[in-house]
Design a binder for these strands. Sequence first.
DNA 1: TCCTATAAGTCTGTTTTACAGACCTATATG
DNA 2: CATATAGGTCTGTAAAACAGACTTATAGGA
Lengths: 113, 113
Amino acid sequence: MKIYRPSRAPCPIGRSARILGDRWVLLILREAFLGVDRFEQFIERLEINRAALTSRLTILQESGLIERVPPQGRKARYVLTERGTALQPLFAEMSKWGSDHLFDKTEPAKDWS
Amino acid sequence: MKIYRPSRAPCPIGRSARILGDRWVLLILREAFLGVDRFEQFIERLEINRAALTSRLTILQESGLIERVPPQGRKARYVLTERGTALQPLFAEMSKWGSDHLFDKTEPAKDWS
DNA sequence: TCCTATAAGTCTGTTTTACAGACCTATATG
DNA sequence: CATATAGGTCTGTAAAACAGACTTATAGGA
């Protein structure tokens, strides 16, 4: 196979990896796709540390994947932007790959918690 | 939008995220798709710390995405398994998403290095 | 055969980051 | 006005990352 360019060049995978190469970011986005949009809801569902959630939400906002809708009434909301929503095909592929390759019953069970 | 299941259930995204939710893992896999298969080559191209590479290669082997082919001659090789190769559509989506959404010239430049 | 270079790691000490859990603040509601 | 809640911030500790030196095995050359 031909190696066609140096890895340090800012390729799309490299840029994507900066944002998506984080376990919490992926899980937060999954929840967002499921309709979760409030801070406390992410906390409960993911059992993520508050500071960790804050930092991930900040990253996601700075990257333009989610938008913080200021509290009208009492609750701020975090909603996917167009750029975030555009990740749907990628998550679909991830889901498919996970289903097809990480649920093999013949393998020793792992603690996925 | 309906929230149809608790986030802690072992869903395919959650399982995938365990493996793929890591910057180095994504970059190592990208290189692997480009044909890189030797330890030193990953080091050079990614400028990754040796210990960090070792730990990621171990994870990738344990997860069954790559296989360590023992040195015949002098060099061990790390090659994608079927499970690893099956990530190609996901990487294609990631590349597409990155290209479409992370190269917007109208935004302030970021240091992607 | 011995010498050297190289691949593929391992080890050490230091800096960064993550985390649990307590604390804080603004606001909506009774 | 008092209280509860959402959405954070702060602090101390534990884990992980990193640079860079060290180690080991082997292939190939003198």
